[in-house]
């Protein structure tokens, strides 16, 4: 395990530039897409429904509803293709894996906002 950790430290530098967020938060991920020569940025806005893995293989899953269809995307934390991340809302949730959102539609699929003073 330690050898793998060393490899992560050596080959996959940590992305310190990304803001801290947690499961339940609503975020916008601006993702670089390379099409042949051209490079453009695509943004994906949704709720973080899970964070899993560790080291270089740590990922987070963002879920949104796009014209009535649920869409989920998994991003690696250490991906060089993430241009930036913006936290829109901090969510108040009672579990770390929000799989129950997959079963919910419309108003039920909302996450309460965290109140901070």
């Amino acid at each position: 395990m330690d050898i793998i950790k060393d490899i992560h430290d050596q080959l996959t530098p940590k992305r310190d530039d990304l803001p801290k967020f947690s499961y339940g938060d609503n975020i916008v991920v601006n993702y670089r897409i390379i099409e042949g020569e051209k490079e453009r940025i695509q943004s994906f806005k949704g709720d973080v429904i899970k964070i899993t893995g560790q080291g270089a293989t740590k990922t987070f899953t963002v879920r949104k509803t796009s014209s009535g269809v649920g869409v989920e995307r998994i991003f690696p934390f250490s991906s060089p293709n993430i241009a930036d991340i913006k936290v829109v809302k901090r969510g108040r949730v009672r579990r770390a894996k929000l799989y129950y959102l997959r079963e919910m539609v419309g108003k039920k699929a909302r996450i309460r906002e965290k109140r901070t003073q």
Binding site: I4, I7, G55, A56, T57, S79
Partner: peptide
């Protein structure tokens, strides 16, 4: 064990 790494092309 296994892991994954990113190439320069991302």
């Amino acid at each position: 064990g296994m892991t994954s790494i990113f190439t320069e092309a991302g």
